[in-house]
């Protein structure tokens, strides 16, 4: 476990905190983000509700995002309130003994709100580094992006993001590495050997939570974006095809995180269109079996 007062970086932020962290990367450059606890918000405080959700595969707990001054308040069932000031930036976490899961929640919506304020874009996607450039995996359905990302890690490629990918839309779009974690299903963990990673946390759930070895994490310097691969299921064999920009926008839009405001929809649309215009987007049809994972990695490296 990494634990000190200046523990490292995530999504390009240099973390400043006295709290324990498990998934940070090296380096200390970048905008400082303050992380503290505990948040003290009573449940009867009201504000404009921007988002509300019921449990789903992506967000397994109910929650709501409320506008606050400054920033936002995020309520997550059983956890309580996260206070997020993206401008400072500063995130205050609820008190809990389960610091591993709390950190995972931190690197989800709270971190997204902070890097959106910085001008970056959030995609519900995994990302890995291949020959110094980032390949992003989006799964419009539930088609194994985390498992494939784990297979890339097992094959020696650096994992940049497991679930939320931060994309910077400069002239050459970049991926800003996120937390160095992998959360894979137990059945996958039993079949796929994941080297250079350590289980963390003590609370059992449907996933094995792994922290990647610090020596392999690298830092949060942005990595040029080589391609976006949309994962599709095929009964047999591999097939990859380019996705026209206008169709790619539809898929990237569905993978993007945005607030329900005109300004944020416009920001997100502009970013997604710019990504679709400047980065190759592929549909990858591949068998969804564990034994085909190494071949899938090889196929992506060669073709995407």
């Amino acid at each position: 476990m990494i634990r000190n007062s200046s523990p490292g970086t995530c999504f390009g932020f240099a973390v400043r905190s006295a709290l324990p962290f498990h998934y940070l990367r090296g380096g200390g450059d970048g905008q400082t983000i303050d992380i503290s606890a505990p948040s003290a918000v009573s449940d009867d405080q009201h504000g404009e509700v921007l988002l509300e959700w019921t449990p789903s595969s992506r967000f397994p707990l109910a929650g709501s995002l409320v506008r606050a001054d400054p920033g936002y308040r995020l309520w997550i069932e059983t956890w309580g309130w996260f206070l997020i000031d993206p401008e400072t930036p500063h995130v205050t976490l609820p008190d809990t003994p389960n610091v591993v899961r709390r950190e995972e929640r931190l690197w989800s919506i709270p971190a997204m709100l902070c890097f959106l304020a910085r001008g970056d874009t959030a995609l519900h996607a995994a990302a890995v580094e291949v020959d110094g450039r980032a390949v992003v995996f989006g799964a419009p359905g539930s088609f194994g992006k985390t498992t494939l990302a784990a297979a890339f890690h097992a094959a020696g490629h650096r994992l940049l993001s497991e679930d939320t990918t931060c994309v910077r839309t400069s002239e050459t779009p970049l991926v800003v590495p996120g937390p160095a974690m992998l959360r894979i299903r137990h059945d996958v963990a039993q079949q796929l050997e994941i080297p250079h990673a350590t289980p963390v946390g003590t609370v059992a759930d449907d996933r094995v939570h792994l922290a990647l070895d610090p020596a392999l994490r690298g830092d949060c310097n942005p990595v040029p974006l080589r391609a976006i691969v949309l994962l599709r299921r095929a009964d047999r064999g591999f097939r990859i095809e380019p996705v026209p920009s206008d169709r790619a926008i539809r898929d990237l839009w569905s993978l993007s995180f945005r607030l329900p405001t005109d300004a944020d929809r416009a920001r997100c649309f502009t970013a997604v269109a710019d990504i679709a215009r400047s980065v190759p987007v592929w549909n990858l049809h591949r068998p969804l079996t564990m034994r085909d994972l190494p071949a899938t990695v090889e196929y992506v490296v060669q073709h995407a």
């Binding site: 026209p244 920009s245 206008d246 416009a266 649309f269 502009t270 269109a273 679709a276 215009r277």
Partner: peptide, 17 residues
């Protein structure tokens, strides 16, 4: 909101409402 796509690809328009 309008955005141009690649050369000869035209563009896309998003109706915000």
């Amino acid at each position: 909101v309008a955005r141009e796509l690649g050369e000869s690809e035209g563009g896309v328009l998003l109706h915000l409402a």
